[in-house]
Amino acid sequence: MPEISGLLPKKPLLIAIDGPAAAGKGTLAQSLAAGLDLPYLDTGLLYRAIGKLMQIAGLDLDDARAATVVAQRLTPDDLRRTDLRGREAGELASRVAIHPGVRAALVAFQRDFAHGPRGAVLDGRDIGTVICPDADVKLYVTASPEVRARRRTDELLAKGRAVDYEAILTEVKARDERDSGRAEAPLRPADDAVVIDTSALGPDEVLAKALSVVENWQQAR
C-alpha cells in the first residue's frame, strides 16, 4: 500500500475522478478518500437511489414532477442503502434519469457535497467536465475495452452469474460509444485531467500514480 500519511490535506481538497465502467475509478476513489480522510461520493448511486425510493413509495417512475421532488429531498444517508447495486436498481435508474428536473437536482446535490468544508472525492463520468470543473485534482481513469470486459466478466462469474465474455465486450464497446457520443455531458477527460490507464496496473499501482498527482498539486500551490 502506498504511503499516504504525509499527503493528508491541510485545507479542503476536491478530487474529481472520471472514466468508463470497470476501469477502476471506484476502487481508486474509495482508496483516496479513505487514505486522505475525505468524504466520498459514488455518483453512480444517485439515480439508482431515486428509482428505488420512488418504487418503495409506490410512485410512478414516469412522473417527472414526483421524481424531481424525490431527487430534491435526497440525502447522503439514502445512498447507504444495500439494494442499489443490482440489475433492478439499474433499470429503475434508467427510468428516472430522463427527467430534466431530476438531473438538475442531482447536479446541485453533487456540487453541494463536493464543496463541503473538508473537500471530497467524487467519481463518475462528468465530474471534472461538468459537475466540478473547479476541482483541485482531476483524474481520468481508463483501460482498454478488452480489459474492462474481462474484469466485468470475472466479477459476474464470481457472483455465480452465467455470462459470456464476448457478449460483455460488445456491451462495453456499445456503452462507450453512447457515453462519449451523447450531446449532454459526454464522457471525456477534462482538458486539465491526468489520464491513468489501468490496463496493466494493480490497485496499489493505480493508487500510487494518483497520490503522485495529488503530491504534485500540493507542491505547486
Rank of each mutant, 00 (worst) to 15 (best):
A162L: 11
K209E: 10
A114V: 08
R221K: 15
D176N: 06
P145L: 04
R103V: 14
Q30W: 00
L211P: 04
E146N: 10
A143L: 10
R175K: 07
E88D: 08
I98Q: 15
V214D: 09
V130S: 11
D77R: 13
P100Y: 12
G24C: 01
A105W: 03
L28V: 00
I4T: 15
Q218K: 13
A190I: 02
I127P: 02
R182C: 06
V69R: 15
S31R: 15
G86Y: 00
D197F: 08
L7I: 05
D63N: 14
L14T: 14
K159H: 12
R103Y: 08
Q72A: 14
E155P: 03
A49C: 07
K11H: 13
R150W: 10
D18Y: 06
A193T: 07
D136Q: 08
R221G: 10
A114E: 00
A66T: 06
A64Y: 09
K173Y: 00
V195W: 07
A143I: 10
S31T: 14
V102W: 05
D191R: 14
P12K: 06
Q219K: 15
A49R: 01
P203V: 13
M54F: 03
L106G: 04
V121F: 05
L211M: 09
D136N: 13
D83G: 01
T82A: 15
L84H: 09
M1P: 14
F113I: 03
T27E: 13
